[in-house]
């Protein structure tokens, strides 16, 4: 029997293993520090297709088939698939689900979508409703820019705190066997809005939600910072991470090197990427190319991964609404 939420946190009695996973990225991420551990790097963001959206879909499909192939899993072995992306109507995920013909739940948590999917999958497995769940998420520089901002070739000048959407996808299969890496707890975030309304500054809009979820998780689990090897947020970027550090410091929480951000580390150092990466693919790629390998190598034992989402729409921004932020956390642990 699963336990009820403690505060905002679920502690899983039957925690699922991440049994197989794969990451795919675009060309820019392929020049970054994690290139060697990304499973497939597409040098063409369209992946040889005729539209950017088909390119993104192709990356998700590659990530899913690679994840299945690594552990010899067939689609029939999957009970449920949960996925999301950044496009209107979560179009990419819906088309992926059309191709696999599996029971599917499409979710939208902006850039927190992968973490939201992992939480949903863990709940359904802990509750005994499923034995294997496929989670996937993607984002794509070109498809996101054209939806949220201006045409790609438009010569606008962006501020240095603007983030650069990560191109890529990640697929994570949860099951009961062959694992060393488990999802043992999850904290479901609240929507927090401190009235940041600059769509170029999404990291700052999301930082309060991330701070709230981290503090809530520590409180609900009665743990302190020394119990973690790494606390890593999804896509706050360098500026958002700085704001998160300040917010936590005010609560007497100094995390130093233990606090990181997937978006801030995914690209190589270059002014072109502004404040760093954003998008679902930031956490989707870093989880598979950095966090899980480090857990497997015993570099880390316990990692808190916080998916951060800026819940804006291009329409509400024009209507002068601010940007609500959300942050969900999953606790990932190495089991020997």
């Amino acid at each position: 029997m699963a336990d009820k939420l403690k505060g905002q946190t679920l502690i899983f009695n039957n925690s699922p293993f991440i049994i197989s996973y794969a990451t795919v990225s675009g060309p820019e991420e392929g020049k970054g520090p994690f290139a060697s551990s990304i499973d497939k790097i597409c040098t063409d963001p369209k992946c040889g297709k005729d539209t950017w959206e088909k390119g993104e879909k192709s990356m998700v499909k590659d990530a899913i088939s690679l994840a299945m192939k690594k552990f010899s899993i067939a689609p029939k072995d999957i009970d449920l698939m949960v996925g999301g992306d950044l496009l209107n109507q979560i179009a990419i995920s819906n088309f992926i689900a059309r191709d696999y013909k599996l029971p599917y739940l499409g979710i939208y948590g902006a850039c927190s979508s992968l973490i939201e999917a992992l939480i949903f999958a863990s709940i359904s497995m802990d509750g005994g409703f499923a034995d294997s769940v496929l989670n996937f998420s993607s984002s794509h520089y070109q498809t996101a820019e054209r939806q949220y901002r201006t045409p790609l070739e438009y010569g606008a000048q962006y501020p240095p705190y603007k983030q650069y959407t990560v191109t890529g996808a990640g697929a994570y299969i949860l099951g009961w066997i062959n694992g060393h890496v488990k999802i043992t707890a999850a904290t479901i975030g609240k929507v927090i809005d401190l009235k940041i309304s600059d769509p170029n500054d999404m990291g700052s809009a999301m930082a309060p939600a991330a701070a709230d979820t981290i503090l809530q998780h520590l409180n609900d689990t009665n743990r302190n910072v020394s119990d973690f090897d790494l606390i890593i947020t999804g896509d706050l970027g360098k500026t958002g991470l700085k704001n998160l550090r300040s917010l936590l410091k005010e609560k007497n929480l100094e995390l130093g090197n233990k606090l990181s951000d997937c978006g801030a580390i995914i690209f190589k150092q270059d002014a072109k990427y502004g404040s760093g990466g954003s998008g679902c693919a930031a956490s989707s790629i870093i989880l598979g190319s950095n966090i899980i390998p480090a857990l497997k190598n015993n570099k880390y034992k316990r990692v808190l991964l916080i998916g951060t989402g800026a819940l804006l729409s291009p329409i509400t921004i024009l209507q002068k609404e601010s940007i609500p932020g959300i942050a969900h956390a999953v606790l990932i642990e190495k089991i020997n």
């Binding site: 927090i192 401190l194 700052s204 309060p208 709230d212 704001n243 917010l247 609560k251």
Partner: peptide
């Protein structure tokens, strides 16, 4: 809430 900050205070911080 864990973050009790007003929007003006946060704007200053950002």
């Amino acid at each position: 809430g864990n973050i009790n900050k007003s929007k003006d205070e946060y704007k200053k911080l950002v």
